[in-house]
Design a protein around this nucleic acid. Sequence first.
DNA 1: GAGTTGAAGATAAATGTTTTTAAAAAGTAT
DNA 2: ATACTTTTTAAAAACATTTATCTTCAACTC
Lengths: 340, 340
Amino acid sequence: MRKTTIKDVAKKAEVSVATVSRTLNDPDSVKKSTREKVLDTVEKMEYDPNPVAKALRLNKVNSIGLIVPNITNTSMAEIIRGAHEELGDHGYNTVLFNSGEDFRREEHFCEIIQNTMVDGVIFVTGTGATPPVEMLSSDLAACLINRKSELEYVDQVMADEEEGMKLLTYHFNRMGHKRIGFITGNQQTSATKNKLKGYKNFFENNELEFNNEYVVSGNWTIEGAFLAMKELLGLKEKPTAVIIGTDTMALGALSAIRDSGLSIPEDIAISGFDNSPSSEYYTPPLTTLKYPNYKLGKLSARSILNRLENPDREKKNINIPLDIMIRKSCGYRIGFDQNR
Amino acid sequence: MRKTTIKDVAKKAEVSVATVSRTLNDPDSVKKSTREKVLDTVEKMEYDPNPVAKALRLNKVNSIGLIVPNITNTSMAEIIRGAHEELGDHGYNTVLFNSGEDFRREEHFCEIIQNTMVDGVIFVTGTGATPPVEMLSSDLAACLINRKSELEYVDQVMADEEEGMKLLTYHFNRMGHKRIGFITGNQQTSATKNKLKGYKNFFENNELEFNNEYVVSGNWTIEGAFLAMKELLGLKEKPTAVIIGTDTMALGALSAIRDSGLSIPEDIAISGFDNSPSSEYYTPPLTTLKYPNYKLGKLSARSILNRLENPDREKKNINIPLDIMIRKSCGYRIGFDQNR
DNA sequence: GAGTTGAAGATAAATGTTTTTAAAAAGTAT
DNA sequence: ATACTTTTTAAAAACATTTATCTTCAACTC
């Protein structure tokens, strides 16, 4: 049984195809009586306009590609949720691509996205390199999350990681810490580079000595952070506070500290980065930075939709500030001004 | 600047459009010299076949819809990863839908998926009801994850939660526990129903008294599990072991136990359910059940692709067993047979 | 040298919409 | 009845492909 087409409906309702089309797309342009007749047969015959034919005619498929480095990551999930929701609210579908932090696959996706049915792309890269947006056909709307692009027609929305990292170091410093360690994610990624920039900048601005030994990569894994923390604890002058690049890695770091018989925050003060849903339930509860993932997704989607409506508007560049989330792991003392 | 079409290529290469098409889709059917000439101009003009026109002609869009209850959930992320990978490997795109555990939105997606460009749907529901697959147009391939359907043409792949739950209770019982509690997720969901079946079944088979007080809902949230555990600890006869429906909820439960000054596993033995990546790093490391999420996604995708190739094949029904993952939280004793 | 065969490529139909056009029909006010 | 407006129609173009059918032409057979 073939699907019913607009022709079938037209024949059954004894009108022209044009009338059926107009009834569906611009109801006011057709007299009430015919409109009802048409709508009736549409219902009866269970007619659904073929989306592909429609897309071909209108040169618009009503879906947006979303390239992410790693769905498994909870922050990424929030980005996806935000983007998907906003897109869905405006009748767009989300076509997901998971690059797995692999630059080759990012390139690959950029290649095949040409041959795939999307009106635009939201790009979240994990790799250090700026995504190969230049490869994209220029009639595709594009928006980068947490990444810059030289291209005039590519929008970008970013979380201000550098500023956030300054916030964190500043907080620790105000609490009297001088030796502040930093367990990074993969050092190739811009997420890490941004944070590092904020970290270094803080030392420079305060004319404190910057010690490179205190920066060690946890490579974005719990195990890696465990090892990294062990390394920091092995230094002759251990740091008294450590900032860990992600909340997930913080789990490994906490475990390493306990493993060494030290206690948190008395011996070592800790902060994470992300405010993942479970960080509040770590032992001890984790001081961290609220990463606006959902908002990032939402705003990037909005940006894409906006550009689709207005292809020639100027480049948009949104920057979202991060808030510090103070919990027990950083060792606040009662009476200390933590503006809570 | 309009995108170059097959016509443009044909004109430039001084052949017919048919020849260009055949060169691209069935190179052997065209003489070497013409083939080279065509391929050359294709390259020069940067011609990409329009996927929409192709889809219209072939009645095939090469993408699959994936409806999930909650992307934020890490197990869901693994399912998505598995499905996406398998689909991508076979040239299919993944169109994501996030229902947010809302039955109304599940229905909504089933409605709009008609008007959206997919060849099939993979369905994983969070709500108790079987997904409204009957609503789907019958020429859409469909596969259900963790859910049954009466329909002959709908495949299903499931994790054997009931059997897994038996495994867990059995394990606790062998370690001498009689009063085994169970903190469930949302009780309306089939995930919970299945586990409950295994839980009850165990008691029946072993002629042990089943105490309904020991089953309390944590509603799938960390907070909920915290409260649920508090409730269990308030009973005159506390359970000596508690199974928690998800690893994430276990965080709340562990926190509640510590909050009451009890220790794990000495006072109370604990197991989770899922084997989430971080469960190994809880304090103490969490005994849990390996949930085959990635595999679930992968197999469902394979099932869909297979049906697309062979639409009239018989219904497929895959069942994946779960393995127990023994760690410290369940209080194994050295020398005890835990087949590790 | 006439007829047959086969390969290579051209032509045109088909996919299901939307939209434009010119024309016709139907309804409304003067 | 006339003029005018609103509604509808039929037909065709356009979107970019694939493919069934037809044509051409050279090689081969007898």
